Simulated assay, not measured.
Amino acid sequence: MSNNKFKLVECSRDAMQGLHDFVPTELKAQYINLLLQVGFDTLDFGSFVSPKAIPQMADTTEVVANLDLNHTSTKLLAIVANLRGVEAAVQHEQINCLGFPFSISETFQQRNTNSSISASLDTVERMLSLCDQNHKTAVVYLSMGFGNPYGDLWNYEIVEQWTETLVSKGVKVLSIADTVGISTPEKISEILPKLISYHPGIEIGIHLHATPADRLKKIEAAYHSGVKRIDAALKGFGGCPMAADDLTGNIATEEVISFLTAKGENLNLNMEKWHEAMVLSTKIFG
């Protein structure tokens, strides 16, 4: 990458989307407004997907209308799963980035977006075009990037093949996503340095899921692999409903902050606002 600044992506959407009780729009917006003041590079805040699939995110449009973006440099990212979602998301001037989960497991692509890998590749191409037209950044998540629980074929060559394909289509930001906590420090250390060295002009990040016991080892492996873009969620909330272990959630943002700070990285975060968000999070997550 061209600069050495770490880009932390706070995944409040990923953390909230699986909650059983609906979080009131006003509380969502209050929480996100606090996170916007912390100084993260990007905030994954909502999604434009079927409310039947993700009821918790049905109010994303209303949340956007309640955000204060006057005093933040943080970019807003919304997840989309099909062309209808892309077309809805690009209408919002406040949204900077659109994220699409592109699975290299055919089984998971069908489960997650109700479409095939080949159809999803078409969606990615349309998203890239619409993002260009509307001055947005497309972020593609290479989902099941470290393996899958379905028995679908996985190896490093498949990861590299799909990375090459997506880059050739014009993807500039690619996040290798664990999805179900199947990654290991060894896999991270094998895969990420190669992808980063093979694609020097592409921003390659990592979206890991982990149990509390193995979070730090995965963060350390990612750091030493040369990753500069790391997704995380406050207190490690969230995770994939398909994960076999109930403890498997997102990488905890506070652990990433602590690790990178100990390494001497200047994250330029407002820790007072971060602690306020930590306190407010108890109203959402309990």
Rank of each mutant, 00 (worst) to 15 (best):
G39P: 04
F40K: 02
T42E: 06
L43Y: 09
F45W: 09
G46A: 06
S47K: 05
S47V: 04
F48T: 09
V49I: 06
S50N: 13
P51S: 13
K52P: 00
A53I: 10
A53E: 08
I54D: 12
I54L: 14
Q56A: 12
M57Q: 14
A58S: 15
A58Q: 15
A58G: 06
E62Q: 15
V63F: 13
V64Y: 12
N66K: 15
N70H: 11
N70Q: 07
T72M: 05
S73N: 14
T74N: 10
T74E: 11
K75R: 10
L77Y: 06
A78K: 06
I79G: 02
V80W: 05
N82E: 11
L83R: 09
L83S: 12
R84W: 09
R84N: 14
G85I: 05
G85N: 03
V86F: 13
A88Y: 09
A88N: 09
V90L: 06
Q91S: 13
Q94V: 07
Q94D: 13
Q94E: 15
I95P: 05
C97G: 03
F100P: 01
F100G: 00
F100Q: 01
P101A: 04
P101T: 01
P101M: 04
I104G: 01
E106I: 00
T107N: 14
R111Q: 15
N112H: 04
T113V: 15
N114A: 15
S115Y: 00
S116Y: 11
L121S: 01
L121T: 06
D122T: 12
T123R: 06
M127R: 03
M127C: 05
L128E: 03
L128K: 04
L128D: 04
L128V: 02
S129D: 14
S129E: 12
L130P: 06
C131I: 02
Q133I: 08
Q133H: 12
H135Y: 13
T137M: 07
T137N: 08
A138C: 06
V139D: 05
G145N: 03
Y150C: 13
D152R: 05
L153T: 09
I158H: 08
V159D: 08
V159P: 05
E160M: 10
E160G: 01
Q161D: 02
Q161I: 00
W162A: 02
W162R: 15
T163W: 06
T163D: 01
T163L: 14
T165W: 08
